[in-house]
Nucleic acid binder design. Structure first.
Length: 265
DNA sequence: ATGTCGAGGATACCTCGA
């Protein structure tokens, strides 16, 4: 008998500022496992009780003061957490666990990269590129370990992953150099991009809309920054993949919405 | 592109990062 497990990923942009919409998401969608990015909270003040109320008794946290921070909360056992610091700069951008069936789940928050797509004048952009290079090294060494890689990659690779390819070609998140690096990362483990596995190009598929739009829904200037990738051997275990777009319209939203994949292992 | 969030310092707004 197949074991069905749903796994969600959500850049929450401060988990403490989003208690109401987190609760709504848990009540309405109730994934078995939720990967969070940008928790913006140290581990001691993570709102563990709220998640426990909804049965998420397994919690693996990698927080830091003020910025970044990732977490995996789960209703089913998760073990062997590890926290990779790819750039050895102390930033909390990764947490990985192993499920009881042996599958690894890796939750990552790739650096945003600042405004200017030029590492000589914008060190943050260089940091983003270097981070991806380290991820490629890590990914290349995974060999045949069945792995799920999810999170906020901060890159929208395809033309149909942004509202306007022309307008954003020089905007960080959609520049050719970032897209080339993401393609190398994907090739390094033959990762299957479940977003496009279930919603093939050129169909519109976004997971992020800027706070700066007057009406995010009407202008619909979205980008697909959040991803769920799996090892080739896991691709046929994924039975559905959804973007919970209405969450962008909830009160006090994150600028990202959750993605949810259901697996039949 | 425009111009909106959240965190946290030392406030009754500012800077930074996104």
């Amino acid at each position: 008998m197949a074991d069905t497990i749903s796994i969600a990923s959500w850049n929450i942009n401060s988990v403490r500022a989003r208690l109401d919409i987190v609760e709504r998401f848990l009540a309405e969608e109730g994934p078995d496992i939720l990967c969070l990015q940008e928790t913006k909270v140290v581990n001691d003040t993570f709102p563990a009780g709220l998640f426990r109320q909804y049965g998420y008794n397994h919690q693996m946290l990698n927080g830091q003061p003020m910025h970044h921070g990732v977490a995996i909360v789960s209703r089913i056992p998760i073990r062997e957490d590890d926290r990779l610091d790819w750039q050895a700069n102390g930033e909390a951008r990764h947490i990985g666990v192993r499920l009881d069936n042996g599958v690894r789940l890796e939750n990552v928050y790739v650096p945003a990269g600042g405004e200017e797509p030029d590492r000589t004048i914008n060190p943050k952009f260089g940091q983003k590129l270097d981070f991806l290079e380290r991820m490629i090294e890590w990914s290349s060494a995974l060999s045949d370990k069945p792995t799920i890689l999810t999170g906020d990659f901060n890159i929208a690779p395809l033309e149909c992953d942004v509202w306007s390819h022309k307008a954003l070609i020089n905007t960080v998140s959609h520049t050719p150099v970032e897209i080339a690096l993401l393609a190398r990362l994907q090739a390094s483990h033959d990762w299957v991009d479940l977003g496009r596995h279930f919603v093939p190009a050129p169909e519109r598929l976004y997971t992020w809309w800027s706070y700066r739009a007057r009406d995010w829904s009407e202008s619909d200037r979205g980008r697909r920054l959040d991803h769920m990738w799996v090892s080739r051997s896991l691709a046929d275990k994924a039975v559905s993949h959804r973007v919970v777009e209405p969450a962008r319209g909830w009160a006090r939203p994150s600028d990202h919405v959750p993605i949810i994949t259901e697996f039949a292992f």
